[in-house]
């Protein structure tokens, strides 16, 4: 039986940290394999930081909802908010950085590269003024490739 739970928290940096820690604690009680827990926490943090910094940049009362569904072979996390849509309404792609000049080194813009690298698949939907980012992670030993296309949102 898949396990499913939802956490809601305010889109401030401190509340977001509490939300991330709470989701990870719950996933560990559901026996999320420790070898992928770090990847999951990092991708979740990047997705949530993106919501607090961009989708809710014009407001301080935003709420972030994280839904987790842990199946036999994969974990699906959905992060949703009712803030501003992604640029051009599309999933952002990783940025490439020039790391050659010390004084010009980037201090940000790593988030989408990390999300794409850490997930098996990622999808963005905008419906009824809500953003939903879905991230799938294949569990160690599972044969599922983590594709998101066969699941209902």
């Amino acid at each position: 039986m898949p396990e499913r739970f939802t956490h809601r928290f305010r889109a401030t940096e401190l509340a977001a940290r509490g939300g991330i820690v709470a989701v990870m604690a719950r996933l560990r009680t559901l026996e999320l394999p420790e070898q992928i827990a770090g990847d999951v926490e990092l991708a979740l943090a990047e997705a949530i930081n993106n919501v607090t910094e961009h989708a809710y940049r014009e407001r301080e009362d935003g709420i972030i909802t994280v839904t987790a569904r842990l199946e036999d072979k994969r974990l699906v996390l959905r992060i949703s908010d009712n803030g501003l849509p992604m640029p051009e309404g599309k999933l952002p792609q990783p940025k490439t950085h020039d790391l050659s000049g010390a004084s010009e080194l980037p201090e940000g813009g790593f988030g989408w590269g990390l999300i794409h690298a850490l997930t098996n698949s990622v999808r963005y939907d905008r419906r009824a003024q809500r953003n939903t980012l879905s991230m799938a992670f294949a569990l160690p030993g599972g044969e599922d490739d983590g594709a998101l296309s066969h699941t209902a949102p």
Partner: peptide, 16 residues
């Protein structure tokens, strides 16, 4: 135990 891209950016800024 945990760093995100904001934390990494802060380390880069510290170096600069």
């Amino acid at each position: 135990k945990f760093i995100d891209s904001s934390g990494l950016g802060a380390i880069v800024a510290s170096m600069k």
